[in-house]
C-alpha cells in the first residue's frame, strides 16, 4: 500500500526484530478467519441472549445499546490499525483493517435496525419523524449513511476503479464518521447526564485522530 511505503522509513529501528515475528504471525492464513469469528462473537452472544432470555428486564434496550457499543468499539479498533502499525512496526495488521471497517458498518447497521424495529416497530413514518426531531438520532443516522459508500467501495475492484488517491480521499470520511458517532453517543447520554463512558470513547477516538493530525504536521 502507498501509505505503508511512505511511513516505513520512520518506523523506529528497535521495533524491527520483534515486529518481524509479530508480522509473521499476523500473516498466517488462520488470522483472518479468526478475527472474523471473533467479531461475530458479540452478535452471537446477543442472539443467544434473546433465546435464553438473559438480556435482562429490557432486552430491546440491551440489543440497541450493545450493538451501538460494539459499533463504537470496532470503529476504535479500525482507526487504531494505522497508528498501531506505525508505532510497533506490525505492518501486517493492515490486512485486517478492511474487515474491521466492514464489521463497524455491520454493527452500525444492526444498531439502526434494532432501533427501527424494536423501538419504532418498523413504522417508516415514525422513524423519519424521530430522526428529524432528535438531533442525536439524526447524527447517528448520518454516521451510518456516511459509512455506506465506504462499505460499498471496500472491495479491490472498487479501489482500482476509483484509483488509489480518490479511494483514499473517499475513505477519509471515516474520520467524520468517528466524530459523528461520538457526538451521537454524547447527546444520547447527556439526557441522563451520564458522561463517563462517553468520555472514554471520546478520549480514544480523540487520540487516534489526534495522532493522525500530528503525523501530518510531522511529514510537512
Amino acid at each position: 500500500m502507498a501509505t505503508s511505503r511512505r511511513w516505513a522509513s520512520s518506523t523506529p529501528a528497535w521495533t524491527s526484530r520483534s515486529s518481524t515475528e509479530v508480522n509473521r504471525l499476523l500473516l498466517k492464513p488462520a488470522v483472518k478467519p479468526l478475527v472474523f469469528a471473533l467479531a461475530l462473537v458479540p452478535l452471537g452472544l446477543l442472539v443467544w441472549g434473546v433465546f435464553a432470555d438473559t438480556l435482562g428486564a429490557n432486552p430491546a434496550e440491551t440489543l440497541i445499546r450493545s450493538t451501538g457499543d460494539w459499533t463504537l468499539r470496532l470503529l476504535c479498533l479500525t482507526l487504531a490499525v494505522t497508528p498501531l502499525r506505525q508505532l510497533t512496526g506490525w505492518h501486517a495488521l493492515a490486512r485486517l483493517r478492511r474487515m474491521l471497517g466492514l464489521f463497524t458498518f455491520f454493527y452500525g447497521l444492526l444498531h439502526f435496525l434494532a432501533f427501527a424495529w424494536l423501538d419504532m416497530g418498523l413504522d417508516l413514518a415514525a422513524i423519519v419523524a424521530d430522526i428529524a426531531k432528535r438531533p442525536f438520532i439524526l447524527v447517528g443516522s448520518a454516521a451510518l449513511l456516511l459509512m455506506l459508500p465506504l462499505a460499498l467501495t471496500s472491495f479491490n475492484r472498487a479501489i482500482k476503479a476509483l484509483g488509489a488517491a480518490r479511494w483514499q480521499a473517499l475513505h477519509r470520511a471515516v474520520y467524520a464518521v468517528a466524530v459523528l458517532a461520538v457526538l451521537h453517543f454524547l447527546w444520547m447520554r447527556s439526557g441522563k447526564n451520564d458522561l463517563a463512558e462517553v468520555g472514554v470513547y471520546a478520549a480514544v477516538i480523540g487520540s487516534l485522530l489526534g495522532w493522525r493530525v500530528w503525523r501530518l504536521r510531522q511529514s510537512r
Partner: peptide, 21 residues
Amino acid sequence: HPRWSQATERRLGEDGLFAKK
C-alpha cells in the same frame, strides 16, 4: 422529552421483543 418520545412505552416483562410499544 427532547430525547425520548413520550407517546408510547414498552411494558417490561409483558410486551414481547417485537411487539409494538
